[in-house]
Design a protein around this nucleic acid. Structure first.
Lengths: 163, 163
DNA sequence: TCAAAATACGTTATAATGTAACATATTTGA
DNA sequence: TCAAATATGTTACATTATAACGTATTTTGA
């Protein structure tokens, strides 16, 4: 029996992911499923080498390219996102939780990084993307992909700080 | 005579930078001035180790912390920006070229990275920041700093591709 | 003006992140 | 079933960044 077993909620999301892949004609292999599971179980963004440690619980001697290849696949499928400022990865809530039949494949998203608790919230706000495209169009720039990351305090941490 | 000498336009911008620092009560030392000069002379975002090579033309045996410390200072003063997706640095056109008396200190900016020619354009678009703050306010998130980077094609490269 | 404190820089070593290149295994499709 | 495509294993290394400690320079205040 290969692969760690995950919490039920995670398994559900993994099943969603598997369906999305199938719909694209790509395969969520055991390895990829396991890496995605490790990302999803983490309360926070996870670094590639933390994932590698997680993998090694199961597959001794696993090496960096194993993780990076799985991450590349998951990014291309739009199942995870990379938070550039943290060099770390989070599950795509849009693809995995929603009942978005058109999910999967990379999409524009925005990330709110709380410097208090380290949690990251994903937004899929049309207004931000629209403002970006608006601002770039008149100088003739064509946006293919955008990275939007904000650092600050989430509501809970702000309240804790003021108290 | 320490320090490389730069093109006249660069020296002018360095002088602007020096004035901004003085206004904040901080010092643009020879070393910091030299690193900033190397950033400004580059046509594109420069990596820390490229800057280190540049420094070594003048100061043999310079080591990474020398460059990183200078970069940290310049970032804090708002004289340069880091492009996260490229792990590279660019001069802040807003601070160095404009006659913005209030320049210096970090500010929200947006970067357009052309995957054709590698050039990066800085925007200081209020609408994008506004959209971001708008979208975050209703979930109680307080933005302290934002990173907005778009990849795509600049006008020149798009025209070249269509031709 | 001189000594203490603060700031900046030098130096060595190492941590953290990411990839190239090639071998092996597994899956897919004719 | 066999060839091609895809996925994974493995070794070695490249790139980016920082910790820790010592020295030099600058600033400040008595």
């Amino acid at each position: 029996m290969a692969g760690t077993s995950f919490a039920e909620k995670t398994e559900t999301r993994l099943d969603n992911a598997e369906r999305l892949c199938a719909a694209h004609g790509s395969r969520l292999t055991d390895l990829r499923r396991q890496v995605l599971g490790l990302v999803l179980e983490a309360a926070r963004p996870v670094g590639a080498y933390d994932l590698l440690d997680g993998l090694r619980a199961d597959k001794k001697g696993a090496a960096p390219p194993t993780v990076y290849r799985a991450l590349d696949f998951l990014l291309e499928e739009g199942l995870i996102h990379k938070i550039e400022r943290l060099s770390a990865f989070v599950g795509c809530t849009h693809a995995l939780d929603g009942s978005h039949t058109e999910a999967g494949h990379p999409h524009a998203a925005q990330f709110l990084i709380c410097t208090g608790c380290g949690q990251v919230t994903e937004l899929d706000d049309h207004g931000i993307l629209h403002a970006l495209v608006d601002a770039t169009r008149h100088i003739g720039f064509t946006v293919r992909h955008s990275t939007v990351e904000a650092e600050g305090l989430c509501a809970a941490c702000r309240d804790a700080a003021t108290a």
